[in-house]
């Protein structure tokens, strides 16, 4: 049975009407019209759907929208400030941190969330953090280079 759910995404309120089984990822895409969050595996392995929930990177395919009321949700659509890209987005562009781009929203949110939690992550910690998500194009080296570049700028 559908229930009214209030989501707060990138500072904006969305009043949606969904079944309890609707995942946060599907609610963002289908009901809030925010299709920047991508769904890969739908079982928490690939990380493409990573969003920030009260600042923490989480798999949006493993949460139900109904659980996320009263929480602050951030998605890739909230990163840029108007035409001004977030340092992480710019770094992915400049360092060629993407090819097909499918995994990119997840990587951006993962890296932004992780660095906001711990700005001084060292190389090993960055690698370990980036192992959370799957990318089949880049081989990860340019993603790591992008995150390192953005880290310097974000500090």
């Amino acid at each position: 049975m559908k229930t009214p759910v209030k989501l707060r995404v990138n500072g904006q309120a969305h009043e949606i009407f969904v079944e309890p089984r609707k995942t946060l990822a599907d609610a963002l895409r289908d009901d809030c019209g925010l299709t920047g969050t991508h769904l890969g595996c739908e079982h928490g392995v690939c990380g493409a759907c990573t969003v920030l929930l009260d600042g923490d990177p989480v798999r949006a395919c493993l949460m139900f929208a109904i659980q996320c009321q009263d929480m602050e949700i951030r998605t890739v659509e909230g990163l840029a400030d108007g035409e001004e890209l977030h340092p992480m987005q710019r770094a992915f562009w400049e360092k060629h941190g993407l090819q097909c781009g499918f995994c990119t929203p997840g990587f951006l949110m993962l890296a932004v969330g992780a660095l906001e939690r711990k700005p001084d992550m060292d190389e090993e910690e960055l690698k370990e953090m980036l192992s959370s998500n799957l990318c089949r194009c880049t081989g990860y080296q340019n993603i790591l280079a992008a995150v390192r570049a953005a880290q310097a700028e974000m500090q």
Binding site: D56, P57, M63, A114
Partner: peptide, 8 residues
């Protein structure tokens, strides 16, 4: 798991 798994 990984960090996003561990925070949740």
């Amino acid at each position: 798991g990984h960090m996003p798994i561990r925070v949740r």
